[in-house]
């Protein structure tokens, strides 16, 4: 970097910092409409902000997020199935490579953890991984939805809701149970039931991990002095980390337990 560019960089950075400081001083300490405790509690429990779900029930925003994510994935998968997969080549292009890598990674995870029975497991961990990753990244879009109280709310990650996390944990446990039944019949069922705490631990691990990220972001946003620039990094970093780590952890645990209960003992 030559001297001219360096000076320009210093001047621009200094200008941005000064503008931020001025904005912080001008805005002062915000008198929030609701205290931080309420904000945090609502982020965890979703007791107040509800969204009407097709006129059936007043659901937590995460349920709307879950169906929205499914709709997005469905449209994406349909486009890929109709227009991309028929044009697959023996030597893959960039997009084909990404798709093959995604399928290959989860298939490899299933194969390595359950070498004797992995076809269904591979499909499941692929779905779970894609859902956790895309669902968590969906939070970054900040899609707004109307609440039943007349306000609006940014849709959270589907698994930041305890109900979503429990359903994922229970579904994973059912998949593990199915592996036990397919591999060892009654003995497989008993082996699976032995780990009865598994759905609870999986659910709350997922919920706690995703919620902690949401809470930190919520805290950063709440205080105006930290609500400039910083949330951009904090939100993106936390969300991406959780998306990757939780997708890996849940799929890896499911594959591990599936392989364990479905392995035929000699």
């Amino acid at each position: 970097m030559d001297r001219k560019k360096r000076n320009r960089f210093i001047i621009i950075t200094a200008a941005i910092l000064i503008v931020l400081l001025v904005m912080i001083i001008i805005t002062g300490r915000r008198e929030s409409e609701e205290p931080i405790r309420m904000v945090m509690k609502d982020a965890v429990l979703h007791e107040h902000a509800k969204i009407n779900f097709f006129g059936i029930i007043d659901a937590n925003p995460a349920l709307i997020s879950a169906y929205t994510v499914t709709a997005i994935i469905f449209v994406f998968a349909l486009i890929v199935r109709l227009f991309v997969i028929p044009k697959f080549k023996k030597i893959p292009g960039k997009f084909q490579l990404v798709l093959e890598q995604a399928v290959g990674i989860f298939d490899g995870l299933a194969t390595s953890n359950s070498p004797h029975r992995h076809k269904f497991l591979g499909a499941y961990v692929f779905t779970a991984g894609a859902y956790i990753f895309i669902g968590t990244m969906f939070e970054l879009l900040g899609v707004m939805a109307p609440t039943t109280t007349g306000g609006t709310i940014a849709l959270p990650a589907p698994l930041a809701d305890i109900n979503g996390a429990i359903s994922m944990g229970v579904f994973s446990y059912c998949v593990i149970l199915s592996g036990g039944i397919a591999g060892n019949r009654i003995k497989g069922v008993l082996n699976t039931l032995k780990d009865f705490s598994l759905p609870i631990s999986m659910s709350f691990r997922l919920f706690g991990a995703l919620l902690s990220g949401a809470l930190v972001t919520e805290l950063v946003y709440y205080y105006v002095t930290t609500s400039f620039i910083i949330p951009v990094f904090v939100a993106v970093m936390f969300t991406m980390l959780h998306a990757l780590i939780q997708a890996y952890v849940l799929t890896m645990l499911t594959a591990l337990f599936y392989g364990e209960v479905s392995a035929q003992e000699e």
């Binding site: 349920l63 499914t70 469905f74 591979g122 499909a123 779905t127 229970v170 579904f171």
Partner: peptide, 22 residues
Amino acid sequence: QQILLHLFNLILLFGILYVLLY
């Protein structure tokens, strides 16, 4: 009820992803 709705969504997603992509 919401857990069941989430489960329904997950199974639906599993079917979609399995048939269309995986």
